[in-house]
């Protein structure tokens, strides 16, 4: 049982006594998410140990092999890609663990995909970039922090700061000229917090001066809740609100009832 599962499960258990089968599906989904983030949650504390230098060295090797062609041999940036000096370990962890880096193809925006590097490698890369100059550290989301986070506060902060781009339930939305605010259904709590702290691509930065760590965890908890919570009223229709609703009203409602009309009006052949 992962941390995530426990905390979300506890939060919901008091309201929803859910049907077992749906609970199983949910638990599996949560467990997968939880495993993903617990795998790298303890990271970020390794900086001062003797291993840290080793991690930096290996990270640099990985960097030279996979990243330097765009970001430059010393991460100073090139015409193609920005400098990585000072972006911090959080940016590396976010970009690489969400598969956005290395970039698959140039476009308006990097797309989320399966990560190319293992979490160990990501940590090494992060350690290397961190060694180039400060910046936000990798996010650490402990089980207790998630348990203690206030879901309602997370919701209020989400609506005030995130919903305008990522949509009320994290389904994502378009920005100008092909850019978009991504769907949050796959984002882990640490990725959510790292995105807030580093402001990847079009996203503004939400630093700790604005949203403290506890509030950031609350937002992450809320995002996980709205993207994973069982829907109360049947199929969510993609969570996009009135557009798919209208489409279904026309296709199923009007389409289905017109078919019924034709059946009623059809001449009976016995």
């Amino acid at each position: 049982m992962s941390d995530m599962t426990a905390s979300l499960g506890a939060a919901r258990a008091s309201t929803h006594r859910r049907r077992r089968s749906s609970a199983v599906v949910l638990l599996l989904a949560l467990a997968a998410t939880g495993v993903l983030w617990t795998a790298f949650a303890p990271r970020g504390t390794a900086q001062s140990t003797p291993d840290a230098n080793e991690a930096v060295r290996q990270g640099r090797a990985l960097y030279l092999q996979g990243c330097s062609s765009c970001h430059g041999l010393n991460a100073q940036g090139t015409g193609q890609a920005p400098s990585l000096i000072g972006v911090g370990a959080a940016a590396v962890d976010f970009q690489v663990s969400t598969g956005r880096m290395p970039l698959a193809a140039p476009g308006a925006q990097a797309k989320r995909k399966d990560p190319v590097y293992s979490q160990t490698q990501i940590d090494q890369l992060a350690a290397y970039v961190d060694s180039l100059g400060g910046g936000p550290k990798q996010a650490v989301v402990t089980r207790n922090a998630l348990d203690d986070a206030d879901l309602a506060q997370g919701g209020e902060l989400y609506r005030a700061n995130c919903a305008q781009c990522h949509q009320a339930v994290g389904a994502g939305a378009p920005l100008t000229y092909g850019k978009y605010a991504p769907d949050l259904s796959k984002a882990t709590p640490s990725q959510i917090i790292e995105a807030m702290r580093t402001g990847p691509e079009s996203m503004p930065v939400f630093g700790p001066g604005q949203i403290d760590d506890a509030s950031a965890v609350a937002i992450a908890k809320y995002v996980r809740f709205v993207t994973e919570a069982p829907s109360a009223g049947g199929s969510t229709l993609g969570k996009y609100g009135p557009v798919p609703e209208g489409l279904l009203a026309w296709l199923a409602g009007i389409g289905g009832l017109l078919a019924v009309c034709m059946w009623i009006g059809a001449r009976q052949k016995v």
Binding site: G155, E156, R159, A160, A163, Q164, C165, H166, Q167, A168, V169, A171, A173, P174, A181, V226, S231, A232, G233, G234, S235, T236, L237, K239, Y240, G241, P242, V243, E245, L248, A252
Partner: peptide, 22 residues
């Protein structure tokens, strides 16, 4: 088919908005 899940939108606040408001 869930329609207008008002609980996901939250209460009205003049400073807030959700994208894809239709």
């Amino acid at each position: 088919a869930q329609i207008n899940p008002i609980w996901s939108f939250g209460p009205y606040d003049p400073g807030n908005v959700s994208s894809a408001s239709q």
